[in-house]
Nucleic acid binder design. Sequence first.
DNA 1: TATGAATGAGTATTCATTCAT
DNA 2: CATGAATGAATACTCATTCAT
Lengths: 206, 206, 206, 206
Amino acid sequence: MGRPSNQFQRKKQIVDALLAVMATTGYENASINAIAKHAGLASGLVHYHFKNKQAILVELVNLLDDTAQSRYQDLKLNASDPKQKLSAFIDSALALGQGSNQHAVAAWVMIGAESIRQEEVREIYQTVVKKNLSELQLLIRNYSKENDKKLTKKTIENIATIVYGSIEGSYQLASTASEIIPKNYAAKALKNMLFALLDAGTDVII
Amino acid sequence: MGRPSNQFQRKKQIVDALLAVMATTGYENASINAIAKHAGLASGLVHYHFKNKQAILVELVNLLDDTAQSRYQDLKLNASDPKQKLSAFIDSALALGQGSNQHAVAAWVMIGAESIRQEEVREIYQTVVKKNLSELQLLIRNYSKENDKKLTKKTIENIATIVYGSIEGSYQLASTASEIIPKNYAAKALKNMLFALLDAGTDVII
Amino acid sequence: MGRPSNQFQRKKQIVDALLAVMATTGYENASINAIAKHAGLASGLVHYHFKNKQAILVELVNLLDDTAQSRYQDLKLNASDPKQKLSAFIDSALALGQGSNQHAVAAWVMIGAESIRQEEVREIYQTVVKKNLSELQLLIRNYSKENDKKLTKKTIENIATIVYGSIEGSYQLASTASEIIPKNYAAKALKNMLFALLDAGTDVII
Amino acid sequence: MGRPSNQFQRKKQIVDALLAVMATTGYENASINAIAKHAGLASGLVHYHFKNKQAILVELVNLLDDTAQSRYQDLKLNASDPKQKLSAFIDSALALGQGSNQHAVAAWVMIGAESIRQEEVREIYQTVVKKNLSELQLLIRNYSKENDKKLTKKTIENIATIVYGSIEGSYQLASTASEIIPKNYAAKALKNMLFALLDAGTDVII
DNA sequence: TATGAATGAGTATTCATTCAT
DNA sequence: CATGAATGAATACTCATTCAT
């Protein structure tokens, strides 16, 4: 009957290794050999499980998105009103620096840059962005609805986009300038700014 | 006597070529050959003018910073009060998409990623970040002072950082997801959000 | 499971190729491509087995030393008294020109020159020199002891060094001036000169 | 009438620079640029004065030989009998380490290695060797004649060759192993060995 | 599944030499 | 004579990918 399949475990091992290696070396410099060594596997095995190097990256993008999603879902469970849900989104995204997610944050920045030049990566990256923008728009709409604000679709889009951009930018700064930026500023500062805007008179918001 | 020097012109040519090439291919994939070809030069000449590839990148970072600076200085000339000056900063940074600066924006994103792994690049990158954060803090302080708000140093730092992060994040989104984000949303949305915060009661801001 | 290792065989193949190529072209001009071609291998494989070109050279120095050692040990087996042992050393070192060791001699001269500028090579080279000087000093001491001569440590050192220098110099002449120097002069001439000195009155020797 | 020619001075400057540079880097790594910089000249000027790099090396070989010759001629002036003349040859050749001739010695070793692979260099190198061997043979013949020893031509050749080889070998050891060999051993040790041989009964010498 | 040897194209960098000024 | 910019071939080394075992 042959040995039991361990495809899943091996793939995870390899993707994790790519994450670790590319967080410090970048994607181009994360050689298959380095990835294999980090995973404790023979280099040939990497290509047995993945058609090519790009396929590992694609898998990594999915992994990072899944992780972020589940973190958000967890936090959302305890959120009862729209404001708390919006906060949950931002908090889950910007709980930077704690745990081993510094690697993930650095890798995400690299992926962002990589998606400029790799079509397939860009597609998945955009899918993730789109999903997050949609979720943010929904959360913002619900929040403003509850507060009896009537925001146009366009306004909500703009706000969601700048908020999501702020999150991505915080990743960038956390990875490249952590010594010169405040600690743990991001989530709170972004929430304050966002709610100040949403709570202001509608004439302010465009 | 002897051949006249044209170092300055050639160096500019090469740096410009790196900008153009890496905007679409990334730094690693911007081969010296590709750069030379784009500049219409022999590949050996690139190394005659630059010690190594990294030196070109360093020069490019300086160039991009200089360009951004002068754009800001220009806009600031017409700004008479603190609010206008703060606006000038954001406008000069986020006047994306117009002119040939799409390349510059994409390159800047690549540089951000590259600075995670190249010490020397990171240092210059951080210098630029630091300078911008300082300027932003000054502008915010002046604005709040004029409005009789007393913000703590820490608060000003946090606000400046999230604002600068938003700018960097907008570059990221503009480069990788321009099809799925609103057009020209960034400057206005960020300014609205920022001033909503700064104009809110001090109890809101921390 | 998996492909059987042949590292040992391949490494030998590559080192042998370096020997052959550098004997006629020098180290700098022994390109990895030339070495690979001579060994019948793909150029990339050379770097799969050796970290860099210098590592091959280091391995070659060791190989040449090993070969010389075993030649000496073989000859020493048939030597019963101190004089014969001393002769065995010189004979094993200066049995030039016969067999395929012309390449080895030329390569050794190149290595000597190379060790002036490559630290790591110089270290191994010096180790080999030191070992040979020690052995020569021991042989000379034993010989003079048997002949009731009392030579100072310093005298023995000096003699050993000039003898070893003569050997190295003979390699040089054999490689660069073989047409204009006598055939097979070296071992006999050096032995005659050395024993004339050692057998002379102690007043002669200093 | 144009400016006065300084060809001679310039050529000397360049040859001296090659000597200095190649003493530490080897011939292959002594780039024209490095030579020019060391000489304080523009790189193009080097090729104005020398057809190619090899021509500088050829000139250097001649320079080193001339220097050695004049040192020998100086010492020979004070030598009145054959023994003193023979000593003068060895002394002039082995006055190592003093003055700035360490560079010259190292360069000579490099030239020896280089002459294995460069035909033209080998030819000059051999000319120098031949001249020195002839002189040594003459000196040995005169010495033995005075002492009423009748040495065959072959014997004299052999002795001259091993003596000259010893000199070359001493250069090698002085350049690559100076830390582990005695100081100033060479001239005295070689002379003792040589005269012990020449003064021994003719039955010893073959 | 797994190993690790093998390939060959690609990359940054160096450098002798030429040439415009 | 002199400068130094320009060329283009050569070189060590890297690496994704393939393949024999």
